[in-house]
Design a protein around this nucleic acid. Structure first.
Lengths: 133, 133
DNA sequence: GCTACAACCCGTAGCCGCTACAGGATCAAG
DNA sequence: CTTGATCCTGTAGCGGCTACGGGTTGTAGC
């Protein structure tokens, strides 16, 4: 079943990834090395596409490549590791929260400094002042 | 006035930066090359510290090194460029807003998937499912 | 003055996650 | 059989540092 083959270009496109990214994933062992044609071109199956989509989706959600490696291992059939996966997701949510808080703080500082610029009485640039210049 | 000299170590510490980062900034032309002692050690003045603090603060606020280069040029005395600086700050606020929105979206997806884990009826791990595995 | 040891010097390589070449070989359509 | 798109490998670059290694200098105590 589903013995249709795809070139790396098609695979990449179907998963919304860059072709060289796919080769990169193979090099670092995130994607398995696919079979080749006689001429040496990579020849992918549907399972490769699933894997690549999984990786891309995880990346889009902000997981690092090492975390994705773990997620892949945990998603193997037969591995009962839902709790671990959930914990990883929760940790990740926490780190996202921290980054959001950080960005909101920055935003506040910058916004305030830029807003002061409306005031024509200020002689020195308030943004530069906020930066310590 | 203020002819006190500092070593690179002191400078770095005073600005909360890493020593090698200071050398890196010098290499890429973000910090000026300071005078040297007879033995060849860098010898910094207070103005260097001001500059380094400006850079670090800008970095903390999320500006890239190229943007900081422009900010430094615009903060030179005699340059009346408050509007440009303000525009840079505003652009930066906009990009921060975009990143925050992005992170909040991710957070939503992850949070929802992780929350579904409480439900013991689900056979497949909902987080893995959300990732497309 | 001499010794110890911290602090400095320079250059290079590594980190993450790609991306972009160069210089070829192969594949599919006409 | 030719064209042109796609593929191959290998290497180098991005931003913004950080970490080494192997050497030199600065400084405090004796």
């Amino acid at each position: 079943m589903s013995t249709r083959r795809m070139t790396i270009g098609r695979l990449a496109k179907s998963a919304g990834a860059n072709l060289e990214t796919v080769r990169y994933y193979e090099r670092i062992g995130l994607m398995p090395a696919p079979p080749r044609t006689d001429g040496g071109h990579r020849s992918y199956l549907f399972e490769h596409l699933q894997r690549l989509r999984f990786i891309r989706r995880s990346r889009e959600l902000g997981f690092g490549l090492d975390a994705i490696r773990r997620l892949i291992a945990l998603s193997e059939p037969g591995v009962q590791a839902c709790c671990e996966v959930r914990d990883m997701a929760r940790e990740h949510v926490a780190s996202i929260d921290a980054r959001i808080a950080d960005l909101q703080r920055l935003r506040g500082v910058l916004q305030k400094a830029a807003a002061d610029c409306r005031n024509p009485e200020t002689s020195r640039c308030p943004v530069i002042e906020a930066l310590g210049g």
